[in-house]
Each structure stands twice: as C-alpha cells, then as structure tokens.
C-alpha cells in the first residue's frame, strides 16, 4: 500500500489504540477462560478477571475425569481419515471432470454440485438410521464414512486441473490406461497448493462437527472433542474451573496446529471465495 501516506503522531497513536482495544475485546473470552482454568474451585468466582491464584488442578481434573485425551484422539483419527479420503476422492472425481470427456459429463457435474445445496441437517435423520442398521454407532466408520467425499473438493480440484496447460491434458487423453499414473506424477505436483488448502479445509470441517457425533455416539469412549465437551458441560457446570480447563485442553491442539499451518489456512479458507 505504497499510496497510503504513513500516519503520524496522534493518528498513529489513535490507530494503535483502536487496534489494541479491538484485540483486547477479541481476546477477552479467551482470557477469562484461561484465568478460570488455572484457579482453584473456591477462588474461581471471587475475582474472575484477575489471575490472582494459580493451580494446575482443574486441568488435571478435566483431563482425568473428562476423558479428554481419548476424545482428542478420536477427533484426530476421524479428521485425518476424512481429510485423506476427501482429498483422494476429490482428486479422482475432479480429474474425471477436468481431464476426461465422456457422455453425460456436464449433467454429472451439475448433479455433484447440486449436493452442495443440501444442508447436512436434512440428511441426518435418515443417516442415523443407516449408520445404526450398519451397526456403526460408536465407531470411527460411523463418524467418518458419511463425509468421505465432497462436491466442494471435487469442484476445487477440477478448477485447479483446468488450469493445467493444454498439452499436458491432451497427453492424458491419448492413453486411457494411465490415468492414475498421470494424476499422481503429472497433475498432482502442479496442484499441490490447492490440495493443501482442501486438506486443511476438510480437517477443520471434520474436527468441528458437532451435531453428527452427538447424534451417533452413545458410548463415552467414542465421543469426539465436540460431543465430549457437550457431556462435560452437562456434568460439571458446578465446577466452572474444570469446565473451562476442559475447554482449554480441547482448544489447544487446533491453536497449535493453526499456528504451524497459518499460511495454508488462509489459502484453505479463501479457496472457496475464488472466482469459478
């Protein structure tokens, strides 16, 4: 932003002041949570804004009573499976739509995109029955299988592949046999940024699932972090410090992961906003 004159003096001070204020407001709920998570039970309501006492006990309590380690592990397993599967299925179908020319392609593509119009809530009533009849309640497959493919990912990959140079795409059409090899060794390296973005997007969406795990989990040990927190909220509202400690434990892994993958995150989230 070379055109913008650098603000000086009072304007600069005002701008920093505003930034600081907004940053403080944004962080306030996180701050109060952290304060409570490290306070003993008889102190937590005395001075909720000040970290005037410190103990690790709520964290220990939440970790052991709340079974959060197990929940985090479950969430991780499901999110990784969903992410890998979504990337693979999207690569395959996106490749088919971008690189192959076959009868009914446009209709099929339109049908794929149409599934984006269906809110997940409209399918859950029946999906729960399906998963139940497959005996998949309280299993990783029950948590993951309904989300192994995504029309959004298919679309993203297709768009990225359409940008692959024409000669390369023609090469793919000459020989029908080597599609997978072509995809793996020629196309994939070119669209790595898109794949990374999709992976991150898939991971976050899966990790943040709330209603589905709540619906199909009846065994405590198969809760994800999200449904586990629901359980914790019901059982320990009378121990606010332990509840907040549980919240902190549940949030930390994603905070850390996002710090590491900040750049991919931005790309992942913005990939939906690109011009189609």
């Amino acid at each position: 932003m070379a055109a913008e004159r650098r603000p000086t003096g009072i304007r600069l001070l005002g701008r920093y002041g505003l930034l600081l204020f907004v940053a403080f407001a944004t962080l306030f709920p996180i701050y109060t949570t952290l304060v409570a998570a490290f306070k003993p039970g008889d102190q937590v309501l005395v001075n909720p804004l000040l970290p005037d006492s410190f103990t690790l006990e709520p964290i220990m309590t939440a970790w052991s009573d709340g079974n959060l380690g197990r929940y985090l592990f479950n969430s991780l397993v499901v999110a990784v499976v969903v992410t890998v599967a979504q990337v693979v299925t999207s690569l395959l179908s996106g490749y088919a739509f971008a690189m192959l020319d076959f009868p009914g392609r446009n209709l099929a593509f339109a049908l794929f995109l149409a599934t984006l119009l269906v809110p997940i809530e409209a399918t859950l009533v029946v999906n729960r029955r399906t998963v139940d009849s497959l005996d998949w309640l309280n299993t990783y497959q029950g948590l993951a299988v309904p989300f192994l493919a995504t029309a959004f990912g298919t679309f993203l990959i297709r768009q990225a592949l359409l940008a692959v140079p024409g000669e390369l795409r023609d090469a793919a059409r000459i020989d029908g046999a080597g599609h997978l090899a072509f995809l793996r060794y020629v196309a994939l390296p070119i669209i790595v940024p898109t794949v990374g973005a999709l992976a991150l997007f898939s991971f976050l969406s899966s990790w943040n699932q709330y209603l589905w795990p709540n619906l199909i989990t009846t065994e405590e040990s198969m809760n994800t972090v999200q449904s586990g927190l629901t359980l914790l909220r019901r059982s320990s509202i009378d121990e606010p410090n332990a509840l907040m400690a549980g919240t902190v434990i549940a949030a930390v892994p994603i905070f850390v992961a996002l710090l590491l993958f900040q750049r991919s995150l931005v790309r992942g989230l913005t990939s939906g906003a690109v011009k189609g």
């Binding site: 179908s93 739509f97 989300f147």
Partner: peptide, 19 residues
C-alpha cells in the same frame, strides 16, 4: 474415477434426502 465420490454422495446425501 467418479465412483468413490458418487457412492458416498449418493448414499449419504441423495438417498437420505429422498428418503
């Protein structure tokens, strides 16, 4: 190539919606 996606989308979005 389309089968994996189509099966999942069909079984867990289209079918439940129609049902």
């Amino acid at each position: 190539l389309l089968a994996p996606s189509a099966i999942v989308l069909g079984a867990f979005i289209v079918y439940p919606l129609v049902k």
